[in-house]
Structures are given as C-alpha cells and as structure tokens.
C-alpha cells in the first residue's frame, strides 16, 4: 500500500477499535430499520465486527455475527443433506473457525457472508463427502496490516448488489443456482447463464489482488 492510499483509508488502519466499535454498536440499536436505509451498510458492519474479533477478541461482536450467520450455516448444511444435529455441530464449528481465522479475512476480496460460505462449504465436503478439499495458496496481507478502505467498501457494496440481483432473478433461474450451490451435484451448464452481474465483483477482486501483489513485492 502506498502513502496516498494509506491516508485515504483511516477508518480501519489508524483507529480501528474505537471506530469499529462505534459502528458495531450503532448497528445493534438500529437493527429493526436495517431493511430500509441501513441495508447498504450491513456488510460493512459485519466487516467491522470481524475487525473487533481480530483486534480485541470481542465476544459481543462475535455474538452478533453468530446470531445472524450460524442459523444460515445450519440451514445451508441441512439443505445439503445433513440432519439437524450434524448441521448444528458443524455450524458451531464453522463459527469457531471464523473466530480462530479472523486474521485471514480480507474484506477487499470477500464479504463476511462469502467468507463464511467458503468455510461452510469446505466443512460440508469434509463431513458429508469425507474428502479432502484442496484450497489455493493463501494470500495474506503483509507487511501492511490492512487492505485499502475504499477497496473494502466498494467490494462490500457490490456484494450487496449481487444479493439483490439474486433476489430479483426469475424464480426458475434462481432455483437452478440454488441447486448448484446447495445440493452438491454437478450442474455445469448453469455457470454460463447465471444472469448475475459477476463481472464487477471479479474486476474488484482482481484490483485488490493486484494491490496485494504490489504490496508483497
């Protein structure tokens, strides 16, 4: 990260704990209004909670992430064929992994929901298919501690737009995509025609990777 972008990214890199805490707390108060004006900010609030867990081992921030995401991970696993008891156990395990690996989460490349999805998917393969899941080489941030704040915000917002685009797809197409991701079957023909705006997110992640490669040199 060069000097200019470091200056432009104060929220996470300069005063992380205080700023993130304020945002995380505000969010709790206004939870009921989330659907309207705060919807745009939801992903960034989850990112702030991740920073609190990573920097301060903040259990309240973890509890908020848990109450939102653990039931979703459990639902995902049950739709993939796990019974309720197994899904509960694996969901707890996925959330414990989120705590332990919080320092590996890169908000310039994924939303919290996306990152949790990848952990849950890998555990599903471990548990339901009993196969190893090779993952690409880790690309950690370093020596700079944080990605560019503007990159993070843009990626989080684009992830929210993707969620809305998914919700407004024609029913038939949405069901196809759900099947591909939930039912652990091969549906290779779907990829070419998701009808989703994946190009912007791809370009955003590519940019974050280019910055990362530059910083690692």
């Amino acid at each position: 990260m060069d000097a200019t972008s470091a200056e432009a990214a104060p929220a996470l890199s300069l005063a992380p704990a205080a700023r993130d805490k304020a945002r995380c707390m505000t969010k709790r108060v206004t939870e009921t209004d989330v659907a309207s004006t705060d919807a745009n900010k939801e992903n960034e609030d989850w990112v702030a909670c991740m920073a609190l867990i990573r920097d301060a081992g903040d259990e309240a921030a973890f509890a908020r992430l848990f109450s939102h995401f653990a039931p979703r991970v459990k639902g995902f696993l049950m739709r993939s064929g796990a019974d309720a008891a197994l899904a509960e156990e694996v969901a707890q395990d996925v959330m414990a992994t989120l705590w332990r690996k919080s320092h590996l989460f890169d908000p310039a490349r994924a939303s919290v929901a996306t990152w949790i999805f990848t952990i849950a998917r890998n555990r599903r393969i471990d548990v339901l298919r009993r196969a190893r899941r090779p993952e690409p080489e880790d690309l950690p941030w370093g020596p700079e501690p944080e990605p560019d704040q503007a990159d993070t915000m843009a990626l989080q917002q684009e992830s929210e737009q993707l969620g809305r685009a998914l919700a407004t797809l024609p029913e038939k197409q949405r069901v196809l995509i759900e099947k591909a991701y939930f039912s652990d079957l091969s549906h290779s023909e779907i990829a070419e025609q998701t009808g989703l705006p994946l190009g912007t997110i791809k370009s955003r992640i590519r940019l974050a990777l280019d910055r990362l490669r530059h910083a690692m040199k």
Binding site: F66, P71, R79, A87, S111, F117, T194, L198
Partner: peptide
C-alpha cells in the same frame, strides 16, 4: 472464483434454521 464464491455468500443469506 471470488465472484462465484460471492454467489454462495448471497445464497447463504436465505436459508436460516434456528440454532
């Protein structure tokens, strides 16, 4: 791949079962 993972993340938002 990150974009396809984002689809999984968006789908994850839909299916909640109480813990």
């Amino acid at each position: 791949l990150g974009a396809f993972d984002a689809v999984g993340g968006a789908l994850l938002e839909q299916a909640a079962v109480p813990m």
